[in-house]
C-alpha cells in the first residue's frame, strides 16, 4: 500500500467522502438523512487518521487509538441522535428538519 499508492491519493478520497457527507448533512430534509451525512464525514476523518498513521507513524499505535476513540464517539452520537429523532417524531409526527421550527423567530 505505501509503495503503490501515494499518501495524497488516500487524502483526496477522504476529502471527497467528507465533501459528499457535508452535502448530505446540509441538503437533506430528513433528520435521519442528516445523521447519515454526519456518519459519512466521521468515516472520512477516520480514513484520514489511518492514512497518516500508516504512512508517517506505522510503528506507533497512536493513530489507531485516535481512530478507535473517534469510532466510539460516533457510536454515542448515533445512539443519542436517533433517540432524539424518535422523540421528535412522537411529538410532532414529522422528522423533516424544516418543519421542526419552534425556535424560529
Amino acid at each position: 500500500m505505501v509503495n503503490a499508492v501515494p499518501l495524497s491519493w488516500v487524502l483526496i478520497v477522504a476529502a471527497g467522502l467528507f465533501s459528499i457527507g457535508l452535502f448530505g448533512a446540509l441538503s437533506r430534509r430528513n433528520t435521519v438523512g442528516i445523521l447519515m451525512g454526519v456518519e459519512l464525514m466521521l468515516n472520512a476523518v477516520n480514513i484520514n487518521l489511518l492514512a497518516f498513521w500508516r504512512y508517517l507513524q506505522p510503528a506507533d499505535a497512536t493513530g489507531l487509538v485516535f481512530a478507535l476513540i473517534v469510532i466510539t464517539v460516533a457510536a454515542a452520537e448515533a445512539a443519542v441522535g436517533l433517540a432524539m429523532v424518535i422523540a421528535i417524531y412522537r411529538t410532532r409526527l414529522t422528522i423533516n428538519a424544516d418543519e421542526v421550527d419552534t425556535l424560529k423567530g
Binding site: 489507531l64 481512530a67 436517533l82
Partner: peptide, 27 residues
C-alpha cells in the same frame, strides 16, 4: 489494505453492524 486489521474488524462490527441497524430501526 492499510494493514489496520483490528480497525477493519471494529469498523465492520460497529459501523456496518450496529450503526446501520440503528439507523434502519429509526427509519
Amino acid at each position: 489494505l492499510m494493514e489496520a486489521e483490528f480497525l477493519a474488524v471494529v469498523q465492520v462490527l460497529i459501523y456496518a453492524g450496529a450503526i446501520s441497524i440503528l439507523i434502519l430501526f429509526a427509519i
